Amino acid sequence: VTTYKLVINGKTLKGETTTKAVDAETAEKAFKQYANDNGVDAVWTYDDATKTFTVTEMV
């Protein structure tokens, strides 16, 4: 189990959160659900070296 981080650069929601998951795909599903629940529709990137997902909402 690995800890993954999500950085949110949204128009109305900004911040960071983490989740523990067995792999990046599982973490991504959890983070996308979190973003969807909070109304963030954005572009996703992932950095495997830092285990960090970044979501940037387009203006």
Rank of each mutant, 00 (worst) to 15 (best):
V1I: 12
T2W: 11
T3W: 08
T3I: 13
T3Q: 07
Y4S: 02
Y4D: 01
K5D: 02
L6Q: 01
V7N: 03
I8Q: 02
N9K: 10
N9A: 07
K11E: 08
K11D: 08
T12P: 05
T12K: 09
T12C: 15
T12Y: 14
L13T: 07
L13P: 04
L13E: 07
L13Q: 07
L13C: 15
K14V: 10
G15E: 12
E16Q: 09
T17W: 15
T18L: 08
K20T: 11
A21R: 02
V22R: 11
V22M: 09
D23W: 02
A24F: 14
A24K: 15
E25S: 10
T26D: 06
T26A: 12
T26K: 04
T26L: 04
E28Q: 10
E28G: 07
K29I: 09
A30P: 01
A30R: 12
A30K: 11
A30D: 05
F31K: 00
F31W: 02
F31R: 01
Q33D: 05
Q33A: 11
Y34C: 11
A35F: 15
A35I: 15
A35M: 15
D37E: 13
D37S: 11
N38K: 12
G39H: 08
V40T: 06
A42G: 15
A42I: 09
A42N: 06
A42C: 12
V43F: 10
V43E: 08
W44P: 01
W44Q: 00
T45Y: 08
T45D: 08
Y46E: 00
Y46D: 00
D47W: 02
D48R: 05
D48M: 06
D48V: 06
A49I: 09
A49E: 10
T50D: 03
K51F: 08
T52A: 02
F53D: 00
F53Y: 04
T54M: 06
T54K: 03
V55K: 03
V55L: 12
V55M: 12
V55Q: 03
T56I: 09
T56C: 07
T56K: 05
E57G: 06
E57F: 14
E57V: 09
M58Y: 12
M58T: 11
V59N: 11
V59M: 10
V59T: 11
